[in-house]
Write a protein that binds this DNA or RNA. Sequence first.
DNA 1: ACAAAAGTGTTTTACATACACCCATGG
DNA 2: CCATGGGTGTATGTAAAACACTTTTGT
Lengths: 227, 227
Amino acid sequence: MKITQNIKIAVDAVVFGYHNNQIQILLIQQKFGKKQWALPGGFVLDKETLDEAVIRELKEETGVKANYLEQLYTFGATQRDERLRVISVAYLALINPNNYILKADTDAKDAQWFDIYDLPELAFDHKDIIAVGLERLKAKINYQPIGFELLNTKFPFSDLENLYQTILNKKLDRRNFRKKLLSFGILQETDQYQKVGSGRPAKLFKFNKKKYKELEQNGFHFEIKFA
Amino acid sequence: MKITQNIKIAVDAVVFGYHNNQIQILLIQQKFGKKQWALPGGFVLDKETLDEAVIRELKEETGVKANYLEQLYTFGATQRDERLRVISVAYLALINPNNYILKADTDAKDAQWFDIYDLPELAFDHKDIIAVGLERLKAKINYQPIGFELLNTKFPFSDLENLYQTILNKKLDRRNFRKKLLSFGILQETDQYQKVGSGRPAKLFKFNKKKYKELEQNGFHFEIKFA
DNA sequence: ACAAAAGTGTTTTACATACACCCATGG
DNA sequence: CCATGGGTGTATGTAAAACACTTTTGT
């Protein structure tokens, strides 16, 4: 079987983080040409799967390991890259930037976090890819407990609340939000408290993933209505 | 820029149809080797987009044109095809088989409909791809009005009801279902009736796509709860 | 007249929404 | 004692769920 096809295949990752009440995205600066900012990613090796490729590229280019990773969409327009035909399988990744902030800041300027609403000019069609990623994130936090992947392991309830408000870009009723989330039974109280300047210290919670998986087995479905 | 990558890229389509109260899938018989059944699809040409590639392959191999088409998932395992490394971008397609039944039946045996629960042995990982497609279909009919793409332009309400029951594999309350669907205001009564043997003739309805698009603009969201 | 499928409303129940005050700490 | 953020309960509205009989046709 002989196929003459001159297309290369790459992976790119839309890595979201949450920091200072902002949704951020992890970008790298290209080393060639206009040195534009771009999504971390690169060509798939002959003997690795797509998932393996993104994980590898993320590690190589930014040093991070995603808490959550899912395939997003495959971009196959004919003129994505002016140099040659490249089809890119985009991934959505979530990480807690607190774990990597220093690294990114010190690793010179080749990997940096950007506020999602204040992006630099981007290479290729990466702006479109980010848009698709953001859309997916917005949709998905409503029916999958993935928001926790952006927070510290132990977090005050207000972090979760702010996260949702920021991503959905909408004010939520504190009492109703808390009531709803707690009703699922997938949040575990810890005996720790967090003080931030003035104000009453906040109890810290943990996402009980094991419990969630268990409930999921029994037909439970995480779902928030605040559409 | 020189990349030594030896991977080919293909597209495959999971084409669903609905006939005789069954969800069916369109398969083609391979011309080489074990002549196994496989999803319609093939290699992407250098100068066509992914969407164009599926549309072309569907036409070439089965003669059909999908009513609805969306990208499903990209399969990139390393051993999908024993002959060479092929990454496949899978698509989900919906058509009304009534429009194509004769063609498929007469075109010899190279394209045929199969009941989704009675599939032959399939080539490559196509069984997995179909599973993902079916899952997507099940999820999506609940929040997008895509079920209509599987029915005739004019259809009795019972067709819609049966379609949902078949796909979701669950009994639905007729009154509640009808009430809900009609409440959206996206179904248009016609003045035609359909008789089938005995029983009261059923009024025929049409899906008003224009109206739906209009409502969608204004923030309306098609959503069925029967989870 | 009976079998078969179409058509139709009301009651009950559950969940989303709206809403305001007290608590614990730091300065 | 004041500013700041954390923590809590109830009443109302809306939509889902449960439920059975009548209508129109063919045989």
